Simulated assay, not measured.
Amino acid sequence: MQTETKPKVLNRLNRIEGQVRGIARMVEEDRYCVEVLTQLQAVRAALLRVESEVLRDHLDHCVMGAMTGDDLSDRKAKATELIDLLGRASR
């Protein structure tokens, strides 16, 4: 991961961790289900944003480096890795 991306991702993950702890407290306190569901949706959206940021970093750094490099096996490996990743994400 690129050095400028890592702190942003870690910061977002720490906030998400706090959100999840807050949701656990809501459940313990028997809060209204719709309130809990709303917070769960917010966490899911936040995780998708982190996933997007990590994917963008991977494409900009790892994949682009392989595609512009001379190592054919590395290019094929990165392409296969991306196809597998996107296949899992669509399930």
Rank of each mutant, 00 (worst) to 15 (best):
K8N: 09
K8G: 04
N11Y: 04
N11I: 01
N11S: 06
N11L: 08
R12Q: 15
R15F: 08
I16M: 02
I16S: 01
I16L: 02
E17W: 00
G18W: 04
G18Y: 05
G18S: 02
G18P: 02
Q19F: 03
Q19T: 05
R21E: 07
R21M: 09
G22T: 03
I23N: 05
A24N: 09
A24Q: 13
R25Y: 08
M26K: 00
M26R: 01
M26G: 02
M26Q: 01
V27L: 09
V27P: 03
E29Y: 09
E29V: 07
D30T: 01
R31M: 11
R31P: 07
R31C: 11
Y32N: 15
Y32Q: 15
C33H: 04
V34I: 14
V34Y: 09
V34L: 14
L37K: 13
L37S: 07
T38C: 07
T38A: 07
T38R: 07
Q39F: 01
Q39H: 08
Q39L: 02
L40K: 00
Q41I: 05
A42M: 02
A42D: 04
A42S: 07
A42Q: 07
V43T: 13
V43H: 12
A46E: 05
L48P: 00
V50D: 03
V50T: 08
E51R: 13
S52W: 09
V54L: 15
L55D: 07
L55V: 14
R56V: 01
D57W: 04
H58E: 11
L59H: 03
H61K: 06
H61G: 12
C62H: 09
C62N: 10
C62Q: 09
V63L: 05
V63H: 00
G65N: 11
G65E: 10
G65P: 04
A66D: 11
A66S: 14
A66P: 05
D71G: 12
D71I: 14
D71H: 14
L72D: 14
L72Y: 12
S73A: 10
D74H: 13
D74P: 01
D74M: 13
R75Q: 15
K76R: 15
K78P: 00
K78S: 05
E81D: 12
I83L: 12
I83S: 11
D84H: 13
L86W: 14
G87D: 10
G87H: 06
